[in-house]
Design a protein around this nucleic acid. Structure first.
Lengths: 124, 124
DNA sequence: AACCGTTATATATTGTAAAATATAACGATA
DNA sequence: TATCGTTATATTTTACAATATATAACGGTT
């Protein structure tokens, strides 16, 4: 039987339940919002470089994230091309798109959870 | 219609949905696992100092957390005593205990959410 | 073979959060 | 009034992650 904790708060509506969510592989980060956005931007631009710039992220960091992703997944999520026309570029795989779609639904469920718990803060 | 993403993973059972959860007050952190544990240890020891030592946390950081808590809550969650017998000490209020209890139940629901989503990673 | 924009990688620099250190104030007790 | 362990607070130092910088390799195109 949990009671209301409204009386602990200063003003009603100012408090909210918040959180972050990701997928671990063993002890390491595997996938989360940052990597999802990076994959999406690589998909749009065809370039790790441009994707990183859009996110105000250093190329090095983006490259490391991609390397980790490709290492931790069964098969590569990003195919990297060095040299060639336009200097090269990168493409995300079908698996990457599936993972992004799954992740989007997971986030929606998480958002719903947070909203429900925020409502629960001031009720009961 | 979400399909399984099992085929993206290297080994089954190695991936899990993980996350962190807290309560915001406006733009600022208000309450989370760290502050909950700190309050509990202050309750047990009667001292911010000892509680901080138990958590391998600097006294300064613990004191700042307590100050934020007391500022952000309607009424103080910790009563601080300077000087006197045993040099002083601190006690948590009834409201603090209520908040700890509420937080415990919130964590349990969050843990259940994470476990459900982890199961969902490899099914469907 | 020169060019281009990309990927690949090492090294150096910086920014900032955490920790360490130091010191004072406090007030009941003896 | 001396003691004690706590709270209170400023300053210094350290650690480390993030960033910046630099350079090379690559391979289609022209």
């Amino acid at each position: 039987m949990s009671k209301s904790i409204k009386h602990i708060f200063k003003e009603t509506g100012s408090y909210k339940v918040n959180g972050s969510l990701w997928i671990d592989f063993g002890e390491n980060h595997f996938f989360g919002p940052g990597r999802a956005e990076l994959l999406e931007r690589i998909d749009q631009t065809g370039s790790i470089n441009q994707a990183a710039k859009q996110m105000s992220m250093s190329y090095k960091k983006a490259w490391e994230m991609i390397t980790m992703l490709n290492t931790q997944a069964r098969r590569p999520l990003v195919i990297l091309h060095v040299g060639g026309e336009r200097g090269g570029g990168s493409k995300i795989t079908k698996e990457a798109k599936e993972l992004i779609a799954f992740h989007r639904l997971l986030r929606e469920r998480f958002t719903a959870f947070l909203e429900k718990e925020t409502r629960n803060l001031e009720e009961l």
